[in-house]
Simulated assay, not measured.
Amino acid sequence: MRAIKIVMLAVAGMVVMSCESNTYDEVSVVTTNPTYLANIKPIMSANCTSCHSSDGGQQPYLETYDDVKTAVESGGLLDEINAPSGQGMPEIGRMPQHKIDMVNNWANNGFPN
């Protein structure tokens, strides 16, 4: 009886360890040709504009295409989002890597609107 309990416990442990906590958002495919309206604006709205907007008061503002493009061109935005968690932006924690990659791809592709 004890051997069965040990085997059951081992199996349960393996099942728990094999589970991943990634959400759908974290495993999404990165768009190789992102545009501002379709891909970047939603990322900024969800992660940045609560603080970086005229309402939030923190500059640089990241509300418009021109705002975000200027923040990327200055080097600050990409440095901030690529920094390790706790050292960059957003302050609540690092964005999922696929979102960071999307912003980097957008910049590398010449900022398509």
Rank of each mutant, 00 (worst) to 15 (best):
M1I: 08
M1K: 13
R2M: 09
R2W: 15
A3F: 09
A3N: 09
I4H: 14
I4W: 14
I4E: 05
I6S: 06
V7C: 10
M8T: 03
M8H: 07
A10C: 06
A10K: 02
A10D: 02
V11T: 01
V11G: 11
G13T: 12
M14K: 01
V16R: 03
E20D: 14
N22P: 06
N22R: 12
N22G: 03
T23Q: 14
T23H: 04
Y24Q: 11
V27S: 05
V30E: 00
T31D: 15
T31N: 11
T32K: 13
T32R: 15
N33D: 05
P34M: 02
P34C: 14
P34W: 01
T35V: 03
A38T: 02
A38H: 13
N39T: 07
N39A: 10
N39P: 04
K41I: 12
K41T: 07
P42T: 08
P42K: 02
I43M: 08
M44Q: 11
A46R: 11
A46K: 06
C48Y: 10
T49L: 10
S50F: 14
S50T: 15
C51W: 15
C51D: 09
C51E: 08
S53P: 15
D55A: 03
D55E: 05
D55Y: 07
D55Q: 12
D55H: 12
G56T: 15
G57C: 05
Q58D: 11
Q58G: 08
Q59K: 09
P60Q: 08
P60V: 06
L62Y: 07
E63N: 05
T64A: 09
Y65G: 00
Y65K: 00
D66P: 01
D66V: 07
D67I: 13
V68C: 15
K69Y: 12
K69D: 06
K69L: 04
A71C: 08
V72Y: 01
V72D: 01
S74F: 08
G75F: 09
G75S: 13
G76D: 03
G76W: 15
L77R: 00
L78K: 14
L78G: 02
I81R: 00
A83F: 04
S85C: 11
G86R: 11
Q87W: 11
G88W: 09
M89T: 07
M89L: 08
P90C: 06
P90T: 02
E91K: 08
E91Y: 09
E91N: 03
E91A: 12
I92S: 05
G93L: 11
M95I: 05
M95H: 01
Q97M: 14
Q97W: 03
Q97N: 13
K99D: 00
K99C: 01
D101L: 08
M102N: 02
V103A: 11
N104Q: 10
N104G: 12
N105Q: 13
W106N: 05
W106H: 14
A107S: 09
N108V: 04
G110H: 04
G110K: 08
F111D: 00
F111R: 01
F111G: 00
P112G: 00
